[in-house]
Simulated scan of single mutants.
Amino acid sequence: MPFESTALTIRAWVDGWVVSRGAADPVVRPWGFTVDVGQVTHATRHVLTADDEATVRKVAAEVAAPSVWLKVFADPGAVRSWVGPTWAVDEPGWLMSARLRRTPTAVPDGYTLTTWTRGGVTRALVVAADGSFAARGQIAPTGPTAVVDQVETSAAHRRKGLGSLVMRTLHNTAVDQGATIGVLGGTPDGRALYESLGWQVQAPLVSLFHVPHGV
């Protein structure tokens, strides 16, 4: 693994994610980090480096409120039983990391790739011949590490190598800026793509949002 511990990977993920999303600086807690995001449905997120039942139960009870999210790196089934009925699981996920290196990229015929950097975040956009959206992603380097974020391919343009194009483009950009290790929060849709490019799962990632009346 690129990192010696999951805790270090989590910290790198938090540091890069706040840059990628323009969120507030993370506040260090005894059990992890609190990040103010500032969205109507995602006001604040609490990222736990602790993965024991007692701590997860305690934090979930203390921060429960509408538009609050929890990120826990433990077995999804166990976490669901710890947090109680007022927390809903968004979707299964994984904390993933990889050694970054430059690789060649080639844009498939009929597509156009555009990249730009703003506020330390580089975005890659692929559009089809008619100008419609095909794929995208972004990366936020923070020194030796970089967080890949919001990678997406339109259903109409999948299995054409566009996801790999976006990822390789982002890798190259981060390497050019001095990053050597990549971190991301992977979803079921993206895991196969990431693993094909050398990314490894470091821990399960459970995303939960608060539902005041339970689910």
Rank of each mutant, 00 (worst) to 15 (best):
T145R: 02
R123Q: 11
R136F: 03
R168A: 03
A179W: 03
A129M: 08
V148A: 11
S132C: 11
D130I: 15
Q150F: 15
G178R: 08
H157T: 09
I181Q: 00
V175L: 11
P144I: 14
G143S: 12
T145P: 04
V127R: 12
F133H: 12
N172Y: 00
V151N: 05
A155V: 12
G163T: 05
S132V: 15
T122I: 06
P141C: 09
R168M: 02
G137N: 00
D130S: 11
S164H: 10
V127G: 02
A124H: 02
D149G: 01
G163H: 06
A179F: 05
S132Y: 09
N172S: 15
R123E: 02
M167Y: 03
V121M: 07
V126P: 02
L162M: 13
A129P: 07
D130F: 11
Q138K: 13
H171Q: 12
H171E: 08
L170C: 06
D130W: 11
V126Q: 00
M167G: 01
R159S: 15
L125T: 13
L170F: 02
K160A: 11
R136P: 07
G137Q: 06
A124S: 09
A146H: 04
I139Q: 00
R158D: 15
P144H: 13
T122Y: 00
A140L: 05
H171K: 10
Q150E: 14
S164Y: 08
V148G: 03
S132W: 09
K160G: 15
